[in-house]
Computed example of a mutant assay.
Amino acid sequence: MDKIQTLTSENGIVVFSKSTCCLCYAVTILFQELGVEPLVHELDHDPNGWEIEKALVNLGCNSPPVPAVFIGGNLVGSTNEVMSLHLRGALIPLLRPYQTLA
């Protein structure tokens, strides 16, 4: 879907989310604690959210398809993949180009 492509190519880190999803919130907070500010796109606040959600499933996002995390335009995955990367020490190097100086 064009909207996914546009958002992920124009922003370093994108989290497709739903406002009621606690795992989406946890991933967003993790990124903020690691010094990055992801673009969080709430599907339940987007009139085309259902179509975006179907497109995310077609891209390989599991059920449920949120959070769907993109870093540098590439689909990383959901909470499990993000946390696995973090525990292996591989997440911070992916985030380094997007970290703000604090």
Rank of each mutant, 00 (worst) to 15 (best):
I4G: 01
I4S: 05
I4M: 00
I4E: 04
Q5I: 09
Q5L: 11
T6W: 04
T8H: 05
S9H: 11
S9N: 13
E10M: 11
E10A: 15
E10S: 15
N11C: 09
I13D: 10
V14W: 09
V15Y: 11
V15Q: 08
F16R: 06
S17T: 06
S17G: 06
S17E: 06
S19D: 01
T20G: 02
T20L: 11
C21G: 07
C21R: 12
C22S: 14
C22I: 11
C22P: 13
C22D: 10
C22A: 12
L23W: 15
L23N: 07
C24P: 04
C24W: 07
Y25H: 15
Y25W: 14
Y25K: 14
A26Q: 14
A26F: 07
V27L: 06
V27Q: 06
T28Y: 09
T28I: 08
I29H: 15
I29P: 09
I29Y: 14
L30S: 12
L30G: 10
L30W: 12
L30Q: 13
F31P: 05
E33M: 13
E33G: 14
E33I: 10
L34N: 11
L34S: 12
E37M: 15
E37R: 15
E37W: 10
P38M: 07
P38Y: 09
P38K: 11
P38F: 07
L39N: 04
L39V: 03
L39K: 13
V40A: 02
H41W: 15
H41L: 01
H41R: 03
E42P: 00
L43C: 08
L43D: 03
L43G: 06
H45N: 12
H45Y: 13
H45G: 07
D46F: 08
D46M: 08
N48K: 14
G49H: 07
W50G: 13
W50T: 15
E51S: 15
E51Q: 15
E51P: 05
E53F: 01
E53Y: 09
K54Q: 12
K54P: 01
A55S: 10
V57Q: 13
N58K: 12
L59I: 04
G60W: 01
N62T: 12
N62Q: 12
S63W: 11
S63L: 11
P64I: 07
P65L: 00
P65K: 05
P65A: 15
P67R: 01
P67T: 05
V69A: 01
V69H: 02
F70A: 05
I71Q: 06
G72L: 09
G72Q: 09
G73K: 06
N74S: 13
L75H: 04
V76G: 03
V76E: 04
S78N: 06
S78P: 02
M83R: 14
M83S: 05
L85W: 00
H86C: 03
H86A: 08
L87I: 07
R88K: 11
G89A: 05
G89R: 02
G89S: 03
L91V: 00
I92C: 08
P93L: 05
L94V: 01
L94R: 15
L95I: 00
L95A: 10
R96Y: 06
R96E: 11
P97T: 01
P97H: 02
P97I: 01
Y98R: 10
Y98A: 09
Q99I: 04
T100H: 13
T100D: 07
L101D: 09
L101I: 07
A102C: 11
